[in-house]
Each structure stands twice: as C-alpha cells, then as structure tokens.
C-alpha cells in the first residue's frame, strides 16, 4: 500500500495516459480523438514535472539560506512541449474544420463509407 501512495504521481500519469490513448484509439469522432490526444500529452507533462521535483527541495529561485532546489530543467522542457502540443491541437482542429466542410461529417465511420480513406 505504501508503494501505491508514495508513487501516487506515477499512478496519475499512467491513468491519464491510458485514458488518453484509449480515447484516441476507440472514439470515432475526430474532435474526441484530439481531446484524447491532449489528455495523453498532458500525462507526459505531469510525468516530466514530477520527475523534476527533489524531495524537500525549494522552488528553483535563488534565495538566501536555501540549499536544496528542485530541478528546473524538466519544467523548461515541458514549456516547449506544451507549445508543441498547442500547435498540434490547433492544426488538428483546423484539419477537422476542413474535413467537416468537405465531407459534412466528423464521424470516422461515415467518412470511411464515403471514400474509404480513414
């Protein structure tokens, strides 16, 4: 039980990751797929941020009297990854808008029936 509680951040990450991936694979609605993709990416952000934490470490801002800081690098990396994630979502949604315009639907199976392309 201790093992579960002391690693709670990883359980959250794994849960979110599976929810996201399952949504991407299982849902036929193109918007829901993108939402799933977002949840999946957010779980990775959590993973990185919790990796950066140092036990009993302070926020990485130089202050007098503080010896131990958390590692700021994973946070900085994830800022970049968030930007990439936003760009991906924007592009994905733009594609969905165009798909809706030319097919009149955003359901995967209906699009597939129309021209076997998805």
């Amino acid at each position: 039980m201790d093992f579960f509680i002391s690693h709670y951040n990883y359980w959250i990450v794994i849960f979110l990751m599976m929810v996201g991936l399952y949504t991407v694979i299982n849902r036929g609605n193109l918007i829901k797929k993108i939402i799933g993709l977002n949840i999946f990416q957010v779980s990775v952000f959590f993973l990185y941020i919790s990796i950066g934490t140092v036990k009993e470490g302070a926020a990485p801002i130089i202050t007098e009297g503080v010896k131990l800081y958390s590692n700021p690098l994973p946070h900085v990396l994830i800022l970049t990854a968030i930007v990439v994630g936003v760009a991906t979502t924007a592009l994905g949604l733009a594609l969905v808008v165009r798909i809706k315009e030319s097919y009149g639907t955003i359901e995967e199976d209906e699009i597939h029936e129309m021209d076997h392309s998805l």
């Binding site: 991936l21 991407v24 193109l30 797929k33 993709l37 999946f40 990416q41 990775v44 990439v84 991906t88 592009l91 994905g92 594609l95 969905v96 165009r98 798909i99 030319s102 097919y103 699009i111 021209d115 392309s117 998805l118």
Partner: peptide
C-alpha cells in the same frame, strides 16, 4: 478531400509517436 483525412490520420499517429 482524402488529403485532409490522410493528413489528420498522420497527425494522430505522428503525435502519438512523438509523444
């Protein structure tokens, strides 16, 4: 119009790969 759906499909798979 299949270009749109293939780009979408590539986006989903490519993003999963990159992640």
């Amino acid at each position: 119009r299949q270009a749109l759906t293939s780009a979408y499909q590539y986006l989903i798979m490519g993003t999963i790969g990159a992640t």
